[in-house]
Every structure is written in C-alpha cells, then in structure tokens.
Design a protein around this nucleic acid. Structure first.
Length: 262
DNA sequence: AAGGCCTGCAACCGCAGCGTT
DNA sequence: GAACGCTGCGGTTGCAGGCCT
C-alpha cells in the first residue's frame, strides 16, 4: 500500500505518449459548477496524485465524500471515473490484443452493449476502453459495409469471417511465440469457442475436445470443399478491411460459401 | 509549411437501480 | 412508500495528435 502511494507520487500522467495539456483555462466549466468551485475537463498531475494517495490510504468508495475529504474540486463521479479508468494499479494500457478482440466480439454477441460486464472478463481493461474499441473499430467496420452493427448481415460477417480469422491469427502467433492463446484472456479460448456465437464452426466446449487446435476448427469453418475461402478476394478484403470490397454482395457471397459447406 | 480532416481516447452527461432515512 | 443521495452504466462529446492534401 505504501509502495503504491510512492508510485503514484512519481507517476507521470501521459496521454498518447505526450504530456497532457495542463491549462486550467482549457478545462471548460459550466457556470453554476464553476461558482461552486467544481472543476471539469482533463485531470492535472497534481489531482491524480492527490486522488491516488488518498485512495491508497483510505480505500475507494463513497466517492462524493472522498472528493471532499481529499480536497479535490471534482465531483465524486469524476473521481470514480478517473480512478477506475486510469489510476487503478492494474489498469492495462496499450493496444487490444487479438485474444482480447476475440473475447470482446464473442461476449458482445451474447451480452450486447453490457460494457462493464464484458470488461469483467478482460482483466485490466475498462468498460470505457472496450466501448471505445467497439465504436472506433467494429462500428466503423459496419459503416464501411453500409450496414447496421446489429444487423444479421453484420453479425454473420463477424461470426463467419472476422472471428474465425482472428482465431487463426491467434493460433499462428501463438505457434510462433509458443505462448498460450489465453495469455491475455481471463479464460482459455476453448471456453470462448463454446459460446452461442460459435455454434457454427467452433462448437466444442468440454475439455475432452479442447485439444483440437483452433486452426483446425478455423479451417473447417473457412474451407469450402476443395476451395479455401482465404484465397477469395472477398475474404482478403475482409481481412484487410478493404472498404471497397466489403460490399453487401460480398458478404452475402461469403455467407453463401459457408452455407454451402454446412 | 500550413490548414483541414480524421481518429482515438479521456471525460462528461443523463438515467436507472439500489440503499437509507 | 416517498424522497433523497450515491453508485454504476451506457451514450455522447470534446480535444489532441496524426494524417492528408
């Protein structure tokens, strides 16, 4: 605990690798809250240190009284958010790994926009981070396909193309590095694959079948008789995120390929 | 070099649920 | 059971930095 406090004191708050602007005038405040001395906008290094030190000494929770007691001119909500999304010791930063992407896609297919619930399955990741990932990557991809992110068309695209491809890439990278697929996941991938979304190509949940490799399953999903989807331009467009080829017709074509297999 | 556009992320807002009085 | 405050969640916004022309 004491060590934590020391760490926080030495912590440099960075955003995208650069020091964030600390100009108080940059931080907008609404009239009434300004009168009450409530600050908004980006947190300063000093505020971070105060909050982290206070929590290291007194623990988290009771955010409104915590904000007052710590002498922070912030709302309790703001303090809570800053702690959970940024200052908490076990917050993982950096790119979302392939395994995490797979897990997010899988869990979202089951739970929808239950970001906090999904975040619980990805240790160190926050609901905010996952939500941002979904909006900046997945929703963007749906827009490129000119379809709704919740449409059957897009869900099938995820299920039959994006997810199998992710599994394959994970398998490829894990065989190169000899690291387990579940390195960054809270549970092994074969559990992920046993979920509702995986009933087409990855249905094997019990441990007896977990020895089946992901690549085998993916090949089963991706192959169409003597013809592998990965050699099709539509599939490559999917993989490369080529918006020009990610057309509705192409998605239908891909779906047809898989339908023919089954 | 500079201006405009795009992207990703931190932070805010509104609301719902829950506990307490 | 109504009122109130607190907490947590999901949606949205604002902005810094990167990219493009």
């Amino acid at each position: 605990m004491e060590q934590q406090a020391i760490d926080y004191c030495n912590m440099n708050v960075k955003c995208k690798g650069v020091e964030m602007s600390r100009s108080m005038s940059d931080c907008g405040s609404s009239g009434s809250e300004e009168e009450m001395g409530i600050r908004k906008g980006p947190w300063t290094e000093e505020e971070d240190t105060i909050l982290a030190n206070y929590i290291s000494l007194h623990g988290e929770g009771h955010w409104n009284s915590l904000a007052r007691a710590a002498g922070l001119k912030r709302t309790g909500k703001s303090c809570r958010l800053r702690w959970l999304n940024y200052l908490r010791p076990n917050v993982r930063r950096g790119n979302i790994s392939l395994q995490e992407q797979l897990l997010i896609l899988d869990l979202h297919s089951r739970w929808g926009n239950r970001w906090s619930k999904i975040a619980q399955e990805l240790p160190g990741r926050t609901d905010n981070e996952i939500k941002n990932y979904w909006r900046t990557r997945v929703v963007k991809q749906a827009k490129q396909m000119k379809c709704d992110v919740n449409s059957k068309q897009f869900r099938d695209a995820l299920r039959f193309v994006w997810i199998p491809r992710l599994v394959e890439r994970i398998q490829a990278s894990s065989s190169r590095t000899a690291s387990p697929c579940s390195q960054y996941c809270s549970r092994p991938l074969h559990h992920v694959e046993s979920t509702s979304l995986s009933d087409h190509s990855m249905a094997s949940g019990d441990d007896d079948t977990s020895s089946r490799t992901h690549s085998t399953e993916t090949k089963e999903a991706c192959s169409s008789g003597n013809r592998h989807l990965e050699y099709l331009p539509e599939f490559q467009a999917f993989e490369e995120g080529n918006a020009d080829l990610w057309t509705y017709e192409n998605i239908c074509f891909l779906q047809q390929q898989f339908a023919d297999d089954s």
